[in-house]
Nucleic acid binder design. Structure first.
Lengths: 192, 192
DNA sequence: CTGATACTTGTCAGATTTGACAATAAATCA
DNA sequence: TGATTTATTGTCAAATCTGACAAGTATCAG
């Protein structure tokens, strides 16, 4: 009974707007006022549905983590039997799409992590699992190679991927993107 | 004639304070008020010596670029005859020093680059030269290897270095730092 | 001492941001 | 209809931030 709740939709709208702002201005550079404008809702509603500033940041980080984990599990299920790491690199180093700001958001959240200890811990665990996914794919491709060595190569590939994407805001020529992917593949090839 | 100028010193103090703030709160998250507090000077003095917000950011970027370029030229002069890239990796992947926030500042400036077109261009050129320094060292070590391939490996190493440092704010265990350096060396070793 | 130059303090108005809450509107069901 | 639950609007006060500028102070050369 009572009026039906639109909390789920509104929360999505708000966090979408927040995410767009974060990709452009960073976490600290995004005011609640701006999120309200970007989402087309009153600032009071952000407060009503999510809460104050700290709770907004935490909600964004939680959703971001859950979503990217979802991507990874999906991709994992679609991975071929052989050359898994090659497929992962192909997938993650596809040409830069301006509307996908996943890595920018990740970088922004990580950069502000020291101000939000709870978020910091969650992101640290998230990053650890992320490297773990790559390491698992590599280990499946090279079952005879030492696990630590696979993990080290996975970390290198993830690093190259992150950096490649965050430098996107500098407007670098496309040869950077190609060379990044190539470097990641080269790193993986050292295990064969 | 007239009172002797302390512009050089004051400018340094102000930019030092700005840099400390940027490493902690990002460019957009740092107010002039906070810089004033951090530097122990009145906000009016920031305005007097450097200017408004945009000019402060540009001054910080200019100094940052000049300083890191200086580091690179210095290091270049001290490089050994052989295994230059190994020496560079050893130098740049030394254990994380909390007081050195060079990479954090770089990431923060890059993240906010889209808001400051002039700074964006300067940082793009800076990043390009940075990769160039690594590529030159690699080419010197492996004169028979194709220049493009050397450049690609250099980009990979720089990416790993940047990422390794910016993830420092997550408080990752030390094995991450070691593995990053190892991955960079592994990448370089593919050319031999 | 005097003038010239540079530094420093203090203050203002306007704008923005935030947390808080009262009041009102809308939708559902009994 | 009327009770109930949820959504939405509007408004406040306090704090902060910014650009601008007036007024005063310190140091040096001559």
């Amino acid at each position: 009974m009572g009026r039906p709740s639109v909390k789920a939709e509104r929360t999505e709208e708000i966090l979408n707007a927040f995410e767009r702002c974060v990709a452009r201005y960073g976490v600290e550079g995004t005011s609640l006022e701006r999120i309200a404008e970007e989402s087309g809702l009153r600032r009071s509603l952000l407060r009503y549905y999510i809460g104050n500033r700290d709770e907004m940041v935490e909600a964004l980080a939680d959703r971001f983590i859950a979503r990217t984990e979802g991507y990874f599990r999906e991709l994992e299920a679609e991975l071929p039997e052989e050359n898994r790491i090659g497929a992962m690199i192909d997938h993650w180093f596809t040409p830069y799409e301006p509307e996908d700001s996943t890595t920018l958001v990740a970088e922004a959240l990580i950069a502000s992590a020291e101000r939000y200890p709870v978020v910091q811990g969650k992101l640290r665990d998230w990053y650890d699992r992320l490297v773990g996914y790559f390491a698992a794919a590599i280990s499946a491709d090279y079952p005879d190679v030492d696990k630590d060595r696979c993990w080290m190569v996975a970390l290198g590939i993830v690093s190259i991927f992150f950096n490649h994407d965050s430098m996107g805001s500098l407007g670098l020529p496309s040869r950077y993107g190609k060379a990044s992917a190539e470097a990641a593949r080269l790193l993986a090839s050292t295990l064969g």
